[in-house]
Design a binder for these strands. Structure first.
Lengths: 108, 108
DNA sequence: CACATATATTTACGGTTGTCAATGTGTAAA
DNA sequence: TTTACACATTGACAACCGTAAATATATGTG
C-alpha cells in the first residue's frame, strides 16, 4: 500500500538467489531441503532468503512435520505485479502540459 | 537477456529514490535540475541514480545545451515488465508432476 | 577572457546486506 | 531417552551501496 512497503517489496526480489528461488518455485511447491540442493548456499542463508520472500508476500509457507513447504502465493504474485505496474509505466496518453514545469523548456 | 542482467535490472529499481524518480517521470520528460528540486538529495547523488536508471534501460536521456533531459523509455519499460513477468508468475496450469522431486512428499 | 550554471566524476564514509559458522528449536525415528 | 534431521536464530565479517563534499567538465553569458 505505502511507498515504504513498495520499496521493501522491490528489494525482496533484488537478489540473485531470491530470483533463482522464484524460478525454482514456478512449477509447484518445494521444501527447503530441495531448494537447498538446487542453490549453492548454506542452510542459514536459504532460511534468511525465504524469510524475506515470505515477508514480501510473494511466497507462502506450510509446515508439515519437520519440513517447511514453500510455494508461490497467487495473491502475492498478483499484488506484486500490480505494484510494479504503478512504477514501471509510461503515461503515454497523458497531456504534455505538465512538462512545462521544467526550468529549461524552449517551447514556451 | 541473461540472468545476471536481470538481477541488475531488478536492483536498478530497488531503491527509494529511484522509485520516486520513476514516478516523477511518468508525466513526461524532466531535466535534472527539476528532479533535483523534487527529491531531497544532492546533485551528485541524483547523477548517480540517473546513471543506474539509464544503464538499466528504463530511462532515456537527451542532452540539450547544458541540460540533461530524462524520460521514461517505452522500450525499456516494456522490456522490464516482460522480464519481471518471467520471475513473478505462477504456472497454475502446470502439472503437479514435477513436485514429486521433493524429498518429503507423502503422496508417493 | 572571467564567471555562472548544469551535470559528471572522484573520493571517502557509514549503513545495509549477503554470507557462513555456531547454536538453538522442534520433530520424528530408533 | 537418545539420536538424527529440518529449519530458525545469533553473531561476526566482508562486500556492496547510498550519500555528500570536493573537484572536474561542459555549456552559456558577461
Amino acid at each position: 500500500m505505502g511507498f515504504r512497503e513498495d520499496v521493501r517489496k522491490v528489494k525482496a526480489l533484488a537478489d540473485e538467489n531470491r530470483l533463482a528461488i522464484m524460478l525454482a518455485l514456478q512449477h509447484g511447491e518445494k521444501c527447503g531441503c530441495v531448494l537447498l540442493e538446487e542453490l549453492n548456499i548454506t542452510q542459514p542463508t536459504l532460511s534468511h532468503h525465504m524469510k524475506i520472500l515470505c515477508d514480501s508476500g510473494l511466497v507462502a509457507s506450510r509446515k508439515e512435520g519437520k519440513w517447511m513447504h514453500y510455494s508461490l502465493s497467487p495473491e502475492g504474485i498478483s499484488s506484486y505485479r500490480e505494484m510494479i505496474s504503478g512504477y514501471v509505466r509510461c503515461d503515454c496518453e497523458c497531456e504534455e502540459d505538465e512538462s512545462d514545469t521544467c526550468c529549461c523548456n524552449t517551447t514556451g
